[in-house]
Design a protein around this nucleic acid. Structure first.
Lengths: 376, 376
DNA sequence: CCAGCTTCATTCGAAATCGAAGATAGCGGC
DNA sequence: GCCGCTATCTTCGATTTCGAATGAAGCTGG
């Protein structure tokens, strides 16, 4: 099931190769799963010189999951089928600063609303995946020590939502989800990937050996690395000259407001850059240079196949160019040889798609599969 | 076999738990392996409230491997049994700068000499694991772009040794091996570990999710990260103010020689520190501070359970103290919470033990096991 | 000292898995 | 259009693995 879900096992023969099981055993299992309504055949694939494979896919009527990306000022939400295909998706308003009680209740309402609009009320809801703009302890699904989320510390988002909606819930940091989303949807076969999200805040998700690297739960924090900047700035963490205090969307907006611009959101920054306002472009390019300065040692150290740039600021071409330049200038040839530096293939959907992928993994590894098999 | 070799499966019941197989199946397999002379029973373990487990271990007469740690100025070599226990070990002279032809031939002679002295000539030699002080392409077992190993670029060490000695050969970078050695021998159960080796050069090995992280082959390079230092220094890589140009044993020795000290090796540096020579102590402490400065963002990013300090300079207490101080001062609480910073548990043997572990993994995963089983 | 509990290891019939051979099906060259 | 090649999928007997029950051995506490 997992292999088919990840799009890696498209036929019985391929499943046999990937799983290491005998073709005969795979056929038997697949037969069972088809009878239980979990898998279905989906026409024939291209021949590789012999008989054409009979493509397999997860049955889209078997159930759905809801994936949500909670941003600082909005919520992006979608319904996905078991294969991770987006059935319906939209963006809704909502400030994360409204606090945990309000936001969890809002998520519940949004979820049912989204299911309604997706016209899948007759299918079982198997799980909910949520991305949050702050550190999440994967063990407890609690938010820990968030910098831009007052009132959220130690709040058990996952448990609350599971109670409210009576479904399996997965909660994860948004940068981590972006990494997962890009890895699954944009870079098949890539083993090691870094995804840097520069929006209101700055975060980084890490895929090591094809799996999300969480470390002790806080991995990927790059926002409080000291940078060499022209002007001093104090960060919310108490230290001075953190990357986040200089190069985040929030920091840039703050700077521009002192100069008389009316900017509130990162998106407005990008608009100003696209309008060709020189002062803003210079500022954004500077932010990119600082981000590159921080990323250089990390790229040398981690030596990824792909570096994905996402989040609001990645839509500004000067920002991306400055990051690229900084990395190619100072990284070792051995580290940049074959390194891809790209903006998010799935754009603003990356986090949401990642949330869907992870909750689908959980659902497909859960008892639900066995129970469904047994009940038919 | 692998589980027993790693010391994780000490009894049939434990193997069943760890492997997920049924106890009965495990018993059958173990019986076979014992009959083939690969495993043996080793008395009884401590009771956990019920019947005492019958301890299992790899049969020490089944074969041996040779593990070598090629340093800049010496070679450390040992004979290990299948369980990774060191049967015999010693340090021999030899400059890596003598070039690849000389060194490979020397390694061959040393290996046979070591086997002789270990008195295991009657046991089959199953593999040779070699650590080199430079980057190794794991796919081809070639040295790539080494900085302190003139003449070694693209030299196929592994292939040459395999030809010369007609055994399976594994070649890996020394810092990577240190990480493996410490992980297997000092930190059981630890998932994520960084091992920093500061000797003549500077390197870092990474264990992610319990496995050696190689990235695209060059992961763990921290030596060419720019640092903020008092005096300028140009590195062999062409950039200025690399960590290696300021804090490596070679760099410190160079500085001290300009000040009239007669120092050639890192070991002499440590002697001077232990003798309480203030000028040297200050220099070494400064090197530690710079290393800490570079490691701080990496610890935030990777968020390991353990940071191991090894290599010659780690024997100097002021160096270690300075690294610790720098990391605790500037790292996020979330990253240092529960972080262990320790000097190598296995000391100067770490790389050699890691080389043994990796070649043993290869041997135990190879056809040799099946062939031995079939032939009895 | 013995009953009750726990853990470790083996036995043996039931069930799952394998693997070799065969059936199915398309490609490509002559 | 036919034959050989390749690849996919299925069939079916042989083998492996499972799992529940059983035996083995030791701890605990009255």
């Amino acid at each position: 099931m997992r292999l088919v879900a990840r799009g890696r096992g498209g036929s019985r023969a391929e499943l046999a190769r990937l799983s290491g099981m005998a073709p005969s055993s795979v056929s038997l299992r697949v037969e069972e799963l088809i009878e239980a309504g979990l898998l279905r055949e989906d026409g024939e694939g291209a021949s590789r010189g012999g008989r054409r494979p009979r493509r397999l896919r997860l049955h889209e009527e078997a159930g759905v999951v809801v994936a949500a990306d909670v941003g600082t000022h909005h919520v992006r939400m979608s319904v996905m089928d078991l294969a991770g295909r987006v059935v319906y998706s939209h963006e809704l308003p909502g400030e994360v600063a409204d606090g945990p009680e309000v936001v969890t209740e809002r998520l519940r309402q949004y979820a049912y609303m989204t299911l309604d609009q997706a016209e899948v009320k007759h299918l079982p809801l198997l799980g909910l995946g949520v991305g949050m703009p702050g550190p999440v302890d994967p063990a407890t699904t609690r938010i820990v020590a968030p910098s831009r989320m007052p009132g959220w510390n130690e709040y058990p988002v996952g448990e609350r939502l599971a109670e409210l909606m009576d479904v399996r819930v997965m909660v994860e940091n948004d940068a981590n989800l972006m990494a997962v989303g890009e890895h699954r949807n944009g870079w098949p076969g890539c083993e090691n990937l870094m995804a840097v999200k520069v929006g209101t805040g700055i975060g980084c998700g890490i895929i090591a050996s094809g799996r999300l690297h969480r470390g002790r739960g806080a991995a990927g924090d790059i926002s409080h690395v000291p940078v060499i900047a022209d002007t001093p700035a104090t960060c919310s963490c108490g230290h001075s000259d953190c990357l986040e205090a200089h190069a985040s969307g929030a920091a840039l907006c703050r700077t521009l407001r002192t100069r008389g611009f009316e900017v509130e959101y990162s998106r407005q920054l990008v608009d100003l850059v696209n309008d060709g306002v020189p002062e803003v472009t210079t500022l954004v390019r500077g932010a990119g240079r600082l981000a590159g300065q921080v990323l250089t040692p990390l790229v040398n150290f981690f030596n990824p196949d792909v570096l994905v740039l996402g989040g609001g600021l990645s839509a500004a071409e000067p920002f991306v160019a400055a990051v690229r330049a900084a990395i190619y200038e100072r990284c070792l040839p051995l580290a940049t040889r074959g390194l891809e530096i790209a903006t998010a293939v799935t754009g603003r959907d990356a986090c949401m798609l990642g949330a869907g992928s992870l909750i689908l993994d959980e659902v497909l590894a859960s008892d639900w599969v066995d129970e469904t098999l047994a009940s038919r």
